[in-house]
Design a protein around this nucleic acid. Sequence first.
DNA 1: TTGTCAAAGAACAATCGTTGGTGATAGCCT
DNA 2: AGGCTATCACCAACGATTGTTCTTTGACAA
Lengths: 154, 154
Amino acid sequence: MRSPEELSALFRAQGRKITAQRQCIFRVLQGDESHPTAESIHAAAKAHMETISLKTVYQTLHELAAMGEIAALDLGTGMTRFDPNTEGVHHHLVCRGCGKVRDLHADFSTVTVPTGAEEGFDVGDAEVVFRGRCRDCRRARATAPRRAKATARA
Amino acid sequence: MRSPEELSALFRAQGRKITAQRQCIFRVLQGDESHPTAESIHAAAKAHMETISLKTVYQTLHELAAMGEIAALDLGTGMTRFDPNTEGVHHHLVCRGCGKVRDLHADFSTVTVPTGAEEGFDVGDAEVVFRGRCRDCRRARATAPRRAKATARA
DNA sequence: TTGTCAAAGAACAATCGTTGGTGATAGCCT
DNA sequence: AGGCTATCACCAACGATTGTTCTTTGACAA
């Protein structure tokens, strides 16, 4: 992700206003590797600006996503997660226990749809999601997951 | 998926009651390759039994999923989809336009997390989701998607 | 600076898919 | 048949996200 200053310049160039709330969100996002949810971003932003609303956070995140500055990921945990790291294709490790997400930098370009199996689809990207259990959740099986949906994936 | 008769026997063996509604759902599910949503299953069931409730459909689907007779998939389209085909590992082609899902029978067992990149994860399965555009959606770009979320995926 | 105006914020409530209560009904066993 | 309970249909709630409305504020020109 670009620096808050660069993002401000980009917003300005697109005719968007630079508000304190937006700059606050830029700063919160900067360097965050934890694939935060909208809620956790909101919580972090509130630490700097008590009055910022969840709606504003959602709005700004969607704008950033539409500009390609961050990625919005739906990894089946029930909440959209946001990924400031958009440099280079990368895949994800998702913890079945706590929903934690880790980037996985690996080349899966060999993963393609077998010829003849396209079913008429114009296939774009392949995304690979590995599901497992993170160190913490393996250690503490007793800890209940916070809000995990019991749906399987793919 | 097993036949409605086999499912009835299984339910009975587990002490669950065999109701007309459940048999109706079994029949609707039988041979369905379209990865239906709970809503569409409900609609199909209503064609045979006008009074069946959405709640009952959800309940029965979750029971079937818990028994491993069907799979519940969250593919990022905003609605859980159900897959009666649980025989063998398979992956999915998801249409960005209409949310349609097609099974993809291919062996991606070579897709593994590079050694050293596990980040402490105890890695389970890899799931591969290919995103693209189905034949219908390529042809009719004007047709608006019914209820697709604009979130990217992984 | 100050004025102007549309963009963006806050607060509220709605939406969607899904699930938890609730009496009433129906299945299964003895 | 009788009785125990699972299951049913109906209603209303839930969490995540978005629409609405009214107010505030940034950006640019005067």
